[in-house]
Design a protein around this nucleic acid. Structure first.
Lengths: 210, 210
DNA sequence: CCTGACTTTGAATCACCAGTCAACTCGAAC
DNA sequence: GTTCGAGTTGACTGGTGATTCAAAGTCAGG
C-alpha cells in the first residue's frame, strides 16, 4: 500500500530529525557530521541525504523540530492547569535548564543558542526562529491575560510587553544557569524568576510559599 | 633594538586579534578561516600560525580580546559620570545592540553568542566567559552600590543579585533586538530596560524624562 | 514468481582548509 | 659588509567530510 510506504517514509524522516537533534545537543552544531546522525539512526550516511536535500536544511529542520517538541509538551501541560499563577510557575519550571531531570529531555537551551548563532546569518533559520520565539512569548502573554480575566493578576502593563520582558529575563537567566552551574543554580533561577515575574506583573507572592 | 622587535611583534599580535574579531563578526565563528584573517591583515596565512599556536587558541583569544575592548570602553565612560542614575542609563545605552552607530564598533553581541556556544563545550572558553561575565555583572552591581551610598537608590535586594537580574534582562533583550530588528527596536529596548531596572532597584523615573 | 518503484548501501568523488616547511627578506649588531 | 635571526611567504601535505551514484535489496501488487 502506498499508505504503508508513506508512513514508513515519514517515520524515517522523523527518526532522522530526532537523531540529529540528539547529536547536535551532544556534540554541538559545529561538530555534527552527517555520519554521526546516520550512526545514531543505525543507517548509512547516504540515506540521510536521501531524505534531506542537504545537511544544512536537515540541521535547520532538526533545530526547529526539537523546539516544536518542547512547545507541544509545554502547552499540553499548561492546558491541564487552571490557575494562572500555577501556569506561570510551571512555565518557569519547565524553562529552567536542568531543573527537571526526570524528563530526560534534550537540553533545549543548548539548542536555542545554536539557533541564535545560526539565525544571525541564515535567513531560513532566522525566519523559523522568529516564529518559535513569537509563540513562546505568546504563551507567557496568554497566561497573563487569563490571569487578569480571572482576577488573579491586576491590570497594568500590556500583556504582550510583559511577555517580552519576562521572556527576555528567562532567556538571560537560562544562559547564566546553563553556562555556570555553580554561581547560579537552577533552584535559584526559579526563585528569582518567580520573584521578578511577580514584581513585573504586580502581584505579591505569599510569604509562606517563598 | 630588541625593544623595537618586541613592540613590532606585539603590534602584529594585536593586529591579528583585531582582524580575527572583525572576521568573526562578519562571517561567524563557523565560517572563519585562517586565510580570511590573513587577508584582512594583508599577510600570508602562514604568518597567522607563526603568531598563534592554533586556530582554536586564536579564536578564543580574539573573542576575549574583543570583549575586553568593550569593557574598557565601558568603564572609561562610566568613570566620567558621577550620578549613578546616569551611569546606569549609559550602561544600558552601550549595551543595546545598534543603538549607538557612531561607535562603528563590532557587534559585541554577535560575539557574545559565539562565546556562549563555544563555552558550552570548550573549557578554556568557558573559563574566559565566566570571568568576562562576572566583570560585567559586577559593573552593574557597583553602580547600584554607589547609587545607594549617594542616596540616589533605596536600599533593598542585594546589589549583586540585582546585578545578576538586570544583567540577565539585558542579555535576554539584546538577543531579541539583535535577531529581530522590527518587532523590538533598540530604542524600545532602552526604554524597557530603564523601566524594568527602575522597578527592580526601586526608584521611579521622572515622568518628564520618559 | 515477476515487475517496478521505493529504500538503502558504501565506495568514489570532490572541495576545502588547518597546519607544516623550506626558502627568502631585511634590519640590527658587530 | 657580513652574519644572524626574527619575520614572512606560499606551496604543499594530509585529513576530513559533504555529496554523488551505481548497484543491491525490499516489498506490494499483479
Amino acid at each position: 500500500m502506498a499508505r504503508t510506504r508513506q508512513k514508513q517514509s515519514k517515520d524515517r524522516h522523523q527518526e532522522i530529525l530526532e537523531a540529529a537533534a540528539r547529536v547536535i545537543t551532544d556534540r554541538g552544531l559545529a561538530e555534527t557530521r552527517i555520519s554521526d546522525i546516520a550512526e545514531r539512526c543505525g543507517v548509512s550516511p547516504g540515506l540521510i541525504l536521501y531524505y534531506f536535500e542537504s545537511k544544512d536544511r536537515l540541521l535547520v529542520e532538526a533545530l526547529t523540530y526539537a523546539n516544536d517538541q518542547f512547545y507541544l509538551r509545554l502547552s499540553r501541560e499548561l492546558r491541564r492547569i487552571s490557575s494562572a499563577r500555577e501556569q506561570l510557575d510551571r512555565l518557569i519550571e519547565l524553562s529552567v535548564p536542568g531543573l527537571l531531570p526526570e524528563y530526560e529531555r534534550l537540553d533545549e537551551w543548548a539548542l536555542w543558542i545554536e539557533i541564535w548563532v545560526r539565525a544571525l546569518r541564515d535567513p531560513a533559520m532566522a525566519k523559523e526562529r522568529e516564529a518559535l520565539d513569537r509563540r513562546w512569548r505568546q504563551s507567557i502573554a496568554d497566561i497573563i491575560r487569563e490571569g487578569r480575566q480571572a482576577g488573579e493578576f491586576p491590570q497594568g502593563v500590556d500583556a504582550d510587553d510583559l511577555g517580552q520582558q519576562i521572556g527576555a529575563m528567562i532567556d538571560g537567566m537560562a544562559i547564566q544557569v546553563m553556562m555556570n552551574d555553580t554561581a547560579f543554580s537552577p533552584q535559584r533561577m526559579r526563585e528569582v524568576c518567580r520573584d521578578v515575574a511577580a514584581k513585573l506583573i504586580g502581584f505579591s507572592l505569599e510569604p509562606a510559599s517563598a
